[in-house]
Amino acid sequence: SASLEDVKTAVLGLLVILQTKLYTLPASHATRVYEMLVSHIQLHYKHSYTLPIASSIRLQAFDFLLLLRADSLHRLGLPNKDGVVRFSPYCVCDYMEPERGSEKKTSGPLSPPTGPPGPAPAGPAVRLGSVPYSLLFRVLLQCLKQESDWKVLKLVLGRLPESLRYKVLIFTSPCSVDQLCSALCSMLSGPKTLERLRGAPEGF
């Protein structure tokens, strides 16, 4: 439990870093931090981490990651405290083949985003970082199938509809809506759902 406290501190630090690096160059920093966060949550489900502190780590990670939004130009952003989304000039939600690297070039400044813009690109060529939603999407499927803490599952179920409104997140990387529907149906009809959940409301 003591070591998990250190892990929790590290994860919180990564969330803060991602919130900053999403809007700064090099964009590969945001890509790497995002991948680290998603990989860490995957390990929770792989090794069945069920301690309360592990659940709190997942809760905080999902609470942040499910706020990711994308505009029509595929640029990622996060809402501010007033709910207004600021889109990044440097990070996009497109999935890119590994051989192309985590970044790609664009020939010049991008068109203005639909929300308040981030800082304008400084040079004639900007390297865009790929932060594909499919990585998070796979972890969300694991959550629906394996999550043991009701608070975490409730958060994910509550945030998913709003995330799905931003269709560009889903359609720019390999996210299977069929698998999502299947996971939701299995969660509702499967007898093991109630068996594994802690803290579920009576009558769920």
Results as ranks from 00 to 15, higher is better:
90 Y>K: 03
133 Y>M: 06
129 G>I: 06
181 C>Q: 05
203 G>R: 08
197 L>N: 03
164 L>T: 01
116 P>A: 12
127 R>Y: 11
146 Q>F: 13
34 Y>W: 08
46 K>W: 08
54 A>N: 01
106 T>N: 12
47 H>I: 05
82 D>M: 10
138 R>D: 15
78 L>N: 04
182 S>G: 13
94 D>S: 09
34 Y>R: 02
30 A>E: 01
52 P>V: 02
107 S>A: 14
18 L>W: 06
15 L>Y: 04
28 S>N: 10
151 K>A: 14
82 D>P: 04
184 L>G: 00
112 P>A: 11
77 G>P: 01
175 C>L: 04
35 E>F: 08
108 G>M: 14
49 Y>E: 02
183 A>I: 11
142 Q>F: 08
89 P>I: 04
14 L>Y: 01
103 E>W: 09
29 H>S: 05
177 V>C: 07
163 S>F: 07
15 L>T: 14
189 S>H: 13
130 S>W: 06
148 S>I: 11
143 C>T: 05
67 L>I: 06
48 S>P: 07
20 T>P: 01
82 D>A: 13
141 L>W: 03
130 S>T: 09
183 A>N: 07
52 P>Y: 02
167 K>I: 02
179 Q>Y: 06
18 L>H: 01
56 S>Y: 11
72 S>T: 09
161 P>K: 13
115 G>F: 10
115 G>V: 14
176 S>K: 12
30 A>R: 02
186 S>C: 08
183 A>T: 09
47 H>F: 11
16 V>G: 15
113 P>A: 13
156 V>W: 00
158 G>F: 09
130 S>E: 07
175 C>V: 05
203 G>E: 09
24 T>R: 15
137 F>H: 04
134 S>A: 07
118 G>Q: 15
34 Y>K: 00
94 D>A: 06
23 Y>Q: 05
23 Y>D: 04
79 P>K: 10
129 G>T: 15
28 S>D: 12
79 P>G: 05
28 S>G: 10
8 K>C: 07
154 K>Q: 11
128 L>Y: 12
166 Y>T: 06
175 C>K: 05
195 E>T: 11
50 T>P: 04
152 V>R: 01
20 T>H: 15
164 L>C: 02
7 V>K: 01
148 S>E: 11
40 H>N: 04
194 L>H: 09
101 G>F: 11
7 V>E: 00
111 S>F: 11
57 I>Y: 01
103 E>F: 13
117 P>V: 12
197 L>M: 13
162 E>W: 07
77 G>C: 05
30 A>I: 04
72 S>N: 08
116 P>S: 13
182 S>L: 07
88 S>Q: 02
69 R>P: 02
78 L>W: 07
181 C>M: 06
163 S>Q: 11
146 Q>T: 09
33 V>Y: 00
167 K>D: 03
9 T>Q: 11
114 T>A: 15
31 T>S: 12
168 V>K: 09
167 K>P: 09
104 K>Q: 14
53 I>N: 02
13 G>Q: 01
176 S>N: 11
55 S>T: 10
143 C>G: 03
182 S>C: 08
2 A>H: 13
88 S>L: 01
39 S>L: 09
161 P>R: 08
136 L>I: 11
23 Y>W: 06
57 I>E: 00
54 A>D: 01
156 V>Q: 01
164 L>H: 01
156 V>F: 00
10 A>T: 01
157 L>I: 04
89 P>R: 14
168 V>Q: 10
50 T>W: 08
167 K>A: 05
179 Q>V: 08
103 E>M: 14
96 M>C: 10
181 C>V: 11
173 S>A: 05
11 V>C: 08
169 L>S: 04
113 P>I: 15
69 R>H: 04
131 V>Y: 03
15 L>P: 10
186 S>E: 12
193 T>S: 07
161 P>G: 10
11 V>W: 02
111 S>C: 15
73 L>I: 08
103 E>K: 13
82 D>F: 09
40 H>Q: 02
179 Q>K: 11
57 I>T: 02
37 L>S: 02
202 E>H: 12
202 E>D: 11
33 V>Q: 01
161 P>S: 13
45 Y>V: 00
14 L>W: 00
185 C>H: 05
202 E>K: 14
24 T>I: 11
23 Y>H: 07
29 H>Y: 06
15 L>S: 14
11 V>Y: 07
176 S>D: 11
165 R>N: 09
93 C>Y: 02
190 G>W: 10
104 K>F: 11
27 A>P: 12
203 G>T: 08
45 Y>S: 00
148 S>F: 09
56 S>P: 02
196 R>F: 05
188 L>E: 01
195 E>C: 09
99 E>R: 13
148 S>G: 13
175 C>I: 04
39 S>N: 13
189 S>L: 14
158 G>L: 12
149 D>M: 03
193 T>R: 10
160 L>I: 06
195 E>H: 09
78 L>S: 07
38 V>R: 01
1 S>K: 04
46 K>E: 14
175 C>N: 06
111 S>G: 14
129 G>H: 15
94 D>V: 03
169 L>Q: 07
22 L>E: 01
203 G>N: 11
46 K>N: 13
73 L>E: 14
50 T>C: 10
25 L>V: 10
130 S>I: 14
154 K>R: 11
175 C>F: 03
202 E>M: 12
170 I>R: 03
195 E>L: 10
139 V>N: 06
157 L>Y: 01
158 G>N: 13
158 G>M: 14
180 L>I: 05
179 Q>A: 11
125 A>L: 12
37 L>I: 15
198 R>W: 06
42 Q>N: 14
132 P>Y: 04
188 L>V: 08
67 L>G: 14
147 E>S: 00
96 M>E: 11
180 L>P: 00
27 A>T: 11
78 L>I: 14
146 Q>I: 09
25 L>A: 15
149 D>Q: 06
53 I>Q: 04
199 G>K: 07
132 P>E: 05
150 W>S: 01
178 D>P: 07
40 H>W: 01
37 L>P: 00
72 S>C: 13
181 C>K: 01
175 C>Q: 05
29 H>T: 03
6 D>R: 00
108 G>T: 13
15 L>G: 13
141 L>G: 03
8 K>Q: 09
8 K>E: 14
113 P>M: 14
86 R>Y: 07
184 L>E: 00
57 I>Q: 00
168 V>C: 09
204 F>R: 03
80 N>W: 11
137 F>S: 03
35 E>V: 08
181 C>W: 05
106 T>F: 10
141 L>P: 01
155 L>R: 09
192 K>D: 15
200 A>G: 08
163 S>K: 08
143 C>Q: 01
80 N>T: 10
75 R>P: 02
2 A>I: 08
68 L>W: 05
8 K>M: 11
24 T>N: 11
75 R>D: 02
150 W>C: 01
159 R>W: 03
134 S>E: 05
195 E>Y: 09
17 I>V: 09
146 Q>P: 01
87 F>R: 04
36 M>I: 09
113 P>F: 15
96 M>N: 14
125 A>E: 09
33 V>W: 01
192 K>C: 14
115 G>D: 11
183 A>G: 06
166 Y>S: 09
115 G>E: 12
29 H>E: 06
33 V>C: 09
128 L>V: 14
